[in-house]
Simulated scan of single mutants.
Amino acid sequence: MESVQEVSQELSLAGEKQPEQLQQAAPQELKKGILKKLRGGFFLVLGYLLSPLCWWNDLLFNLPIAYFFGYMCSLLSPKLLLPCSIIGYWLSNIVGILLMQFGSADVFQNEAKERNLKKELLTGLVSSTVYTLVIMVLIQLKILDTPVLFSNG
């Protein structure tokens, strides 16, 4: 009988403390939500700057990153500069798309959902590959002109 009374007293005390705990937890949850939105916004902007959706980003972001990647690979073999620069450019676009996906999930989703990393990576890989293939086709059809860097003469 005493244990039943103890349990009922503990429950009543827990009921009294609960609103106080909720009041303390609310600002922490709000702070977490704001930090999550800020982090998501940062990733969204950074991803946009690296992605193929931003038309002016190549000169300022992607090409220097691609050249640096190619340069680092050319330290192993000088013939790797151009192929690794192309791979670096492609990878910077993939990273941009993935950062946009992660950032937009933080900014626009109110509920915490499980992320499917495989699906997000596959989506980023496919979209960047399609973008690269479209650019290559446009260059082959002479719709886009290539810089002198790629000439054979």
Rank of each mutant, 00 (worst) to 15 (best):
S92C: 07
C73Y: 07
S128H: 01
S8Y: 00
E2F: 06
C54V: 04
K119C: 06
S3T: 13
L82P: 01
L13A: 14
E2C: 00
E111G: 12
V130M: 11
I135M: 14
Q5F: 11
V137D: 03
L53F: 02
Q24W: 07
V130H: 03
F61C: 12
I34Y: 07
L117T: 14
T123V: 15
P52L: 01
A112T: 12
N57P: 05
V126F: 06
S127L: 14
F61G: 06
L149D: 03
M136C: 15
P78D: 06
G33I: 01
L125A: 15
L121Y: 00
E114H: 01
L144W: 02
L144S: 06
I86P: 00
L76G: 11
N57T: 12
L91I: 14
G103I: 12
L80E: 06
V95H: 05
A14K: 11
Q28L: 10
G33Q: 02
T132Y: 13
E120D: 14
K118W: 14
P52D: 03
N57G: 15
L122M: 14
S8L: 11
M100A: 00
L50D: 01
S104W: 09
L50M: 10
A112W: 06
L46C: 12
P147I: 06
N110Q: 05
L11K: 01
Q28F: 07
W56A: 13
W56D: 04
S51C: 11
P83S: 05
L44V: 05
L60I: 12
K118V: 15
